[in-house]
């Protein structure tokens, strides 16, 4: 009975979707198709993201999305990274005092999944890391960037934890502290890069802005736009590298925290601390 009810609701939803769409396409609403041209603002982004004819008004990266993410709207991205950072810190605060300790005289081969999966993973980890580095380092040229690369790189520690067990991961150097250090260094790199041009401006006595990348009419200093004959988009390459490190390390922290065995957590929590 409940099941029939469920399917009736689903059918009703599909039918009403189709009916609404029919009404819309018959002119019931304002418009039903995408506009023939992009919005004016988007036109400007497309025109200025990589434009050798306007050297004082370009982000100098052929990838418009990365250019917007790290140059035009770099502030958003800095704070987006800090949201992720704060979420990790809040999670670490919830899990404070909980350390991963391997059981006494541990036999690693007893943990994790079967030997075949483990062997395949040994090879795929290298491939995953290389591919993710490629995504991050070509962020200013092709789709991709620091976050995409970092999220892809995070598969590596994840599969290591899942396939080989947490104890193996900790034993081979994937530790909370080192990952936190890496993450902080990545974030500090982002911070330093966003202030690099303005500090240079203060030293040289020229006007500059926070998050400035390429020279502008009003602020005529900036980072080099090409590296080895390839557009690097000034700060974009640096941002992508640092974000890559920060994101990969951040995800690793999350999975390390998530895979702590429940028993050891309970032991700490029942130690009677954390009360008001």
């Amino acid at each position: 009975m409940r099941r029939a009810y469920k399917y009736a609701v689903l059918t009703a939803m599909i039918v009403s979707t189709l009916a609404l769409a029919l009404a819309a396409s018959a002119g019931g609403l304002g418009y039903a198709l995408p506009f023939p041209a992009v919005r004016n603002l988007a036109y400007w982004y497309l025109r200025t993201t990589y434009n050798p004819f306007m050297p004082k008004f370009t982000a100098s990266a052929p990838e418009a999305v990365t250019a917007i993410v790290w140059d035009y709207r770099g502030l958003d991205t800095l704070f987006e990274t800090s949201v992720f950072f704060l979420a990790i810190i809040a999670s670490m605060a919830l899990m404070r005092g909980i350390e991963v300790r391997a059981p006494e005289s541990i036999n690693l081969s007893k943990y994790g999944m079967s030997a075949i999966v483990k062997t395949v993973t040994r090879i795929t980890v290298a491939i995953i890391l290389a591919a993710s580095a490629s995504i991050a380092l070509h962020g200013q040229l092709t789709p991709g960037g620091g976050f995409q690369g970092g999220a892809t790189a995070a598969v590596a520690p994840l599969v290591i934890i899942v396939i080989f067990s947490l104890y193996f991961a900790v034993g081979s150097g994937i530790k909370k502290k080192s990952m936190l250090t890496l993450r902080t260094l990545g974030l500090l790199g982002i911070g330093v890069t966003s202030f690099a041009v303005i500090v240079a401006g203060l030293i040289l006595g020229k006007a500059a802005y926070v998050f400035q990348n390429q020279p502008k009419e009003a602020a005529p200093i900036g980072l080099p736009s090409h590296i080895l004959g390839v557009p690097m988009g000034g700060t974009l390459l640096l941002f992508n590298i640092f974000e890559f490190l920060a994101v990969a390390a951040g995800f690793t922290i999350v999975f390390l925290l998530l895979s702590v065995p429940e028993e050891s957590v309970r032991k700490v929590l029942e130690g009677g601390e954390g009360h008001d």
Partner: peptide, 11 residues
């Protein structure tokens, strides 16, 4: 070597 090849193919 594996990483180098992967990187170049992927790029």
């Amino acid at each position: 070597v594996l990483a180098f090849i992967t990187y170049i193919i992927f790029s």
